[in-house]
Amino acid sequence: MMEIGVLGDPRAAQALVDYMATQGIRAQLQPVEDGTAIVVESPQYHRGREEYERFLAEPYHRRYMAASWESGAVPQRGEGARFDYGAPGLQFVQSLITQSGPLTLLLLLLCSGIWLFWNIGFAESIFGVMHFFPSWEQMSLSEGWRLFTPSLIHFSAMHVIFNLLWWWYLGGRIERERGAGTLLVLLLVAGTLPNLAQFALIGPNFGGLSGVVYALVGYCWITGRFDPQSPLALPPAYVGFLLLWLAMGFMGFMNMANYAHLGGLLVGMGQALLDSRTRR
């Protein structure tokens, strides 16, 4: 059996299991330290994971209520007719926490905090402290943090939301499966070397966590190629979308740090290759 996810509320987990049963997916609940885990048989992992992610996107959809009524999981009249998952905000927070780890959450909060201060009048100060070195001649070990800190700066709402959602989704998955150490290596290497590549080929005016996100994509993609049953394996549609996004940047459809993205992807792929050898 393979875990497809963890929910903080066991009633919500039961609703999802009831629905998956109507789709021919056999799932079971297992109590874990941070909530209730949903597990499925290995051949059904990817279908189960897709249903789990769809549930996270719309946990109050009528399909889950209907499935629970059909299975008899919903209390009858007099016992409380509404199947209550708990407050929507609480359910969101529980999912946010259970599907990540300390490092994932720490960076999520850090980038969100920087974005908040950026938009309440501190943009110039933040950029002055965190932007990349203006030139090769001005590089100095005394300000070595500038190699990494551009990865924490975001310039628009779409920019920060896109990056942090993928960081939470992929980074949380890697941290849960491989530990904070693996995720930290990916963060530091992919948050530094691709920045150097972007600077060398284009210039110093860039920022964002996208290079790190593409490292996570590369890591999960190659891990899945070696072990299709791995919880880190990504559905082909996800990989295809992100590679198309990368290609669109190089074709000029969007103004992005293309070489940081490509560099991050290569870093993640390389780390996955190294890890696959050590795990054989």
Rank of each mutant, 00 (worst) to 15 (best):
E143H: 11
G179R: 01
W168V: 03
L188K: 08
W166G: 12
W136S: 05
W166V: 00
P204N: 08
E177T: 11
R146E: 01
A180V: 15
Q138H: 13
G144W: 15
W145M: 10
E177M: 01
L187T: 10
L183H: 11
Q138M: 06
V185I: 08
L164A: 03
Y169L: 11
A180E: 12
F162K: 02
P134M: 03
Q138W: 00
I202K: 08
W167K: 07
L164R: 09
L164P: 01
E143A: 13
V189F: 10
F199S: 06
L165V: 15
L164Q: 13
E177F: 07
G203K: 11
G172M: 09
L152H: 05
E137K: 04
S135F: 03
N163R: 09
W167V: 04
W167R: 06
W145N: 02
V185P: 01
V185Q: 04
S151I: 04
I202Q: 12
G181C: 05
S156T: 09
S135R: 09
L147Y: 14
P150Y: 05
L147D: 03
A157T: 11
W167I: 07
E177D: 10
P134K: 09
T149S: 14
I161L: 15
A190G: 05
I174W: 06
W166M: 14
S142C: 00
A197M: 13
L193S: 06
S140V: 00
L184G: 08
I153N: 01
G181K: 14
W168N: 09
L186P: 02
V160D: 01
L141P: 06
W166K: 09
H159E: 04
I161Q: 05
L165Y: 14
L141W: 15
T149D: 07
H159F: 07
S135L: 07
L184N: 06
L201C: 08
G203L: 08
E175P: 04
I153R: 11
R176D: 13
P134S: 00
F133Y: 13
L141R: 00
A200P: 03
G172E: 11
S140N: 15
I153G: 01
E137W: 12
G179L: 09
L201F: 14
L196F: 15
S142G: 08
L184V: 04
G179F: 08
M158T: 13
A157R: 06
P194G: 12
W145A: 10
I174G: 02
L152T: 11
L147G: 00
F199L: 00
Y169E: 12
L141D: 00
G179A: 05
S142H: 12
I161E: 03
I153C: 13
Q138A: 10
F162H: 12
S140A: 14
L164N: 02
W168T: 01
L196D: 01
Y169I: 02
G203S: 12
I153Q: 06
T149P: 13
R178C: 02
R146Y: 02
G181P: 01
M139C: 10
G179I: 04
P194H: 09
